[in-house]
């Protein structure tokens, strides 16, 4: 696997990264953990002229829990999320995802910022970040803007990130009753289907639910119908939960590959969503 030639520069701060992006133009790419970008370069599916390494930028790799608000720096590695007790308590769905993502090597290099910016339709975090209704902080030449997850993830390898922008942080309200359940692809170990659920419970009945699914469509999506159907359902009533989760992927043009057809993926979205609901409710 032999990439084409490229230049390599290091950014010392977010401002520096923005400056370098401006300087090197469209042919430049930010480099975080490199675990999506470099495989593509090795296959020569991507051939950026310049890599701007942002891993040296200080203070972008913290997990902060302040009251009910959780903020995660874009350079936080999967392994740090997977090892965080604070995250396990405040947003176990994200902790689940980090623990099931890739393998130890990948988790030790890859970052939540890179995984989000990449927009991979089978990636784990997009479902979780949608279910957590996370806010993305983007900084560019024109300053800072904040976008909700629902606007950030747009399509296959497509996000709202502007050409000269850096994703610096992701934040969300704590969701202690949340879970992410994943159907691992036997080869890639990405999600064939991944369901993220964040619930509130009143006396054993589901109050509000946010449900998001990855792996099935062109991008992760909120399963709005399931969310409304879950309201009021007793969390311990498996049949009622299953009924509410039926058709979780309806309206999606489910993808097929050599492992699983779209129809099967859609059917599994129901099953894994019900499992995620049970797991979240049990927390």
């Amino acid at each position: 696997m032999i990439p084409a030639a490229f230049d390599y520069v290091r950014a010392s701060s977010v401002d520096d990264a923005i400056r370098l992006l401006g300087e090197h133009g469209d042919d430049a790419k930010l480099l975080a953990g490199g675990h999506s970008l470099i495989p593509m370069m090795k296959l020569r599916l991507a051939a950026p002229a310049t890599l701007i390494d942002i891993t040296g930028i200080p203070q972008l790799d913290a997990i902060r829990v302040e009251g009910n608000r959780v903020t995660i720096g874009a350079l936080t590695k999967h392994a740090a999320l997977a090892a965080s007790d604070a995250l396990k308590k405040s947003a176990p769905a994200l902790w689940d995802a980090a623990n099931q993502l890739g393998d130890p090597q990948v988790r030790n290099r890859g970052t939540i910022g890179g995984a989000s910016a990449h927009g991979d339709p089978s990636a784990d975090y997009p479902a979780v970040l949608l279910a957590l209704d996370a806010t993305f902080t983007l900084i560019g030449k024109g300053g800072e803007r904040k976008l909700p997850a629902g606007e950030f993830f747009r399509g296959m390898f497509d996000t709202a990130l502007g050409a000269g922008e850096v994703l610096t942080a992701i934040s969300f309200d704590a969701a202690p009753k949340s879970a992410y359940v994943k159907y691992h692809h036997p080869a890639s170990h990405y999600a064939v289907v991944g369901s993220a659920v964040a619930l509130t419970l009143n006396d054993g009945s589901i109050g509000a639910a946010r449900v998001a699914i990855t792996g099935v469509g062109d991008a992760a999506f909120r399963a709005g119908r399931v969310e409304s159907a879950l309201a009021g359902v007793r969390a311990g009533d498996d049949d009622a939960v299953a009924a509410a989760c039926a058709g979780a992927a309806s309206g999606q043009d489910a993808r097929s590959d050599t492992f699983a057809s779209g129809a099967y993926r859609a059917a599994m979205a129901d099953v894994f969503t019900a499992r995620a609901v049970a797991q979240a409710a049990g927390r």
Binding site: D103, H185, P186, A187, S188, H189, T258, F259
Partner: peptide
């Protein structure tokens, strides 16, 4: 190993061809 009817190899990387962990 899957070739489609055009003779294209659909399982040409370890992302598609499953070797068990």
């Amino acid at each position: 190993v899957v070739y489609n009817d055009d003779g294209q190899l659909l399982t040409g990387t370890l992302m598609d061809y499953a070797i068990p962990h």
